Computed example of a mutant assay.
Amino acid sequence: MSEKCRVAIVGTGGIAGAHAGAVAALAERAELVGAVDVDLDRAKEFAARWNIPATYSTLTELLATGQVDLVHLCTPPSTHVPLATECLAADVDVYLEKPPTLSLDEFDALIAAEEKSAARIACVFQHRFGSGAVRLRELLADGVLGRPLVALCNTVWYRDDEYFAAPWRGTFDVEGGGPTMGHGIHQYDLMLSILGPWQKVTALAARQARPTQTEDVSMALVTFENGAVASIVNSLVSARQTSQLRFDCENATVELEHLYGYQNADWTITPAPGHEAVEAAWSADLLDVPSGHTAQLTAILDAKAAGEPTPVSLSEARNTLELAAAIYASAFTDKPIHRGDLAPGTPYATRMGGPGAPWSA
């Protein structure tokens, strides 16, 4: 590998700009060497904007050059598995946009492909990497906050009917699901990175207002192996948009409110009576690293340089995707789902929506 990590962006639509910006912010460590899009004119326009020297209409052409170390895969979700598998076969690492796959079975197929490769996949869950989330995990691990008891996770956003005019949006077969898969997944992934493995979920989902095959609202009650309990709300019909997380621990309440990304100022900490020292522990030497693709890419490059496992690995991300599948399974069967219930080949492992949402009939 060259001194700088050679990065290519595959899929030059809306989210690709965030990826290019992250590479540009780390120019001393990484460089953009290629852009790929089935629409070559769009790839060329993107390349001109970000000073990328080469464009391709297929991933195969890019990989054939042998001049790339890391592919940022920014294509629609239905293409993730075949394209990521092609990268793995060429022993090229992947930074994979969310949702990583359309189903749990697809995700497990990706894990199997990775096991045969020297390359590794990192899933885009960038909210784990802001300094506030890092500090929260540290204080929980050190026992400063005591046990986590109760958590709230709300992704309440607004998308109008026009947003769903794109034929792949609001579908299980192409997008993978509604706000549970495509929007709230970032917030509850952050919650899971803090609270660890979940145990059981009871959920409901509804199509309240939007012209979709999927839900536009879901709600879930979740229990965790460590004894914590949490509620999760994912919505696309909420006029005042916000993303909220709250963790009530034995010694303090820690809260985060933002929209699409956070900084330290978006966090608040309220010590329980007698535990005022927690506030000083929170703020001590705390850097202000915003959440985002740059923060996660920094962690990926650090791991590559040190020969350590990539963050967030497929094995880590599976906990998140299994919860998404379980929310749909519980909502559509009206039954609680335990982690591990969704065996390979069963309806909600094969497809997030299983046989279909109740309203699809």
Rank of each mutant, 00 (worst) to 15 (best):
E316W: 10
E225F: 00
I300F: 08
V134I: 15
S131Q: 09
I52R: 01
G170T: 10
M181T: 09
A252Y: 00
R135C: 00
A89G: 09
D39C: 12
T350D: 13
L297Q: 04
A329N: 05
S218G: 07
A228M: 05
D108Q: 15
P82C: 07
A43L: 15
T298V: 13
V134M: 15
G176V: 07
T214Y: 10
L221S: 02
W267T: 03
A27G: 15
T79S: 05
R169Q: 06
P100D: 04
D173P: 07
D341I: 12
R339S: 14
T253I: 13
V289E: 10
L104I: 15
L297E: 05
A295C: 02
G13M: 04
V229S: 09
A306E: 08
A16H: 11
R120E: 07
G11F: 02
G11D: 06
I111E: 07
V92M: 07
L104K: 13
N251W: 00
L301G: 01
A305D: 06
G227P: 08
V124Q: 09
A203H: 00
T65R: 02
E215G: 00
I337C: 08
L96V: 04
E138I: 02
L256G: 02
P358E: 08
E215M: 05
L314P: 05
L321V: 11
H80E: 08
A165G: 00
A25G: 12
L286V: 14
G227E: 06
V38L: 15
G356Y: 09
W198S: 02
W50N: 02
L139A: 07
L245R: 07
R339C: 09
S193T: 09
A122D: 01
Y163Q: 08
Y260F: 13
V33T: 11
T85Q: 09
R49I: 08
W359P: 07
M181Y: 03
L139D: 00
A265N: 12
P179A: 10
I194F: 14
P211M: 04
R339N: 05
E61N: 14
A27L: 04
W168E: 15
V23H: 13
G11W: 02
A54I: 00
D161T: 08
N319H: 15
R159T: 00
V312Q: 03
R318W: 15
A16R: 05
G354F: 06
I15P: 02
Y188W: 05
V134R: 08
D189M: 10
D108P: 01
S235Y: 01
E61L: 02
E322P: 01
R169D: 02
D142K: 08
H293A: 09
A280N: 13
A113I: 02
E31D: 14
M352L: 10
F224V: 05
S360I: 14
D39F: 12
E322D: 12
Q187I: 14
W282I: 13
L204G: 12
S78I: 10
S313Q: 12
A119W: 08
